[in-house]
Amino acid sequence: MVPFSIETHHLSHAFHNRPVLHDLNLQVPTGSIFGFLGPNGSGKTTTIRLLLGLIRSPSTAIRLMGKDSRTHRLEILSRIGALIESPALYNHLSGRDNLEVIRLARQVDQKQIDRVLGMVQLTGDAQQKVRAYSLGMRQRLGIAMALLGDPHLLILDEPTNGLDPAGIREIRELLIELSQRHGKTVFVSSHLLGEMEKMATHLAILNEGHLLFQGTMAQLQHLQLPVLSLETDHNATARALLQRAGYQLLDGGTEQLTVSVKDRPQIGAINRLLLDQGVSIYKLHMHQPTLEDLFFTLTSHPKTLENR
């Protein structure tokens, strides 16, 4: 078994001379659930399209399951299940016929259709035309199409789009089971940071085509400094004072200030600074940042990581 199911080497891409990906070096460990995070337009879908060969990539830039993606296209695609952006379905066909189209390409047993329909709980609606499906049902059918053929690697672009909280939970549990019990590698791009926090073993954060972070969840938490939230009688003055003193302010809105701190003595220093300048403090609260905090820190202040 190869250590990495996905490897990219200095992968760059430009649309009409406009660079959208810069020197991307991804390493997705086999058997991991790899969360691929980034704001809209950061290059996530472009990366996925490059991985799947929908966009031509430079030779030797992409290796999937240890094989060069350009020279082993069919062999690689036979081991990948993918859902790219919104599920692309034939609306005039039933859910079962949509799966049959995929089955014919993958040459798998007909029983697998029933199995994946059951996995995404669409057995009862399989004969219905897809045009009558709700957004959530379409999404689940798209996931069923990706699962058909028992692929080694799943590449899912926003798989929980349009699902209700129960549906999101089901998909999360399904992906965790596929990874933990069946050894599948799951590469998921998502905006749902909370979901990623609950299921991803590894993460990559992409912003404006640059890879800002890549590693395990634990490595990510280790990188992140605690955050201090403040409420004062004059936030604007406090913000200016803290900035002048060299503190790194995070986006906390107008109601409260959030500051990255290195240790507890720094909290005392901030307290003294504001009080000495006549700013009253109503609340001081230190907490470990969530993935969401970290995501916004990295994507709004990409240099932060480099400074650590």
Partner: peptide, 16 residues
């Protein structure tokens, strides 16, 4: 059939 459903990406990500 493919253009309206935007299924070209599915077609070309199958092992064919």
């Amino acid at each position: 059939i493919e253009h309206q459903s935007q299924t070209w990406k599915t077609v070309y990500s199958l092992p064919m």
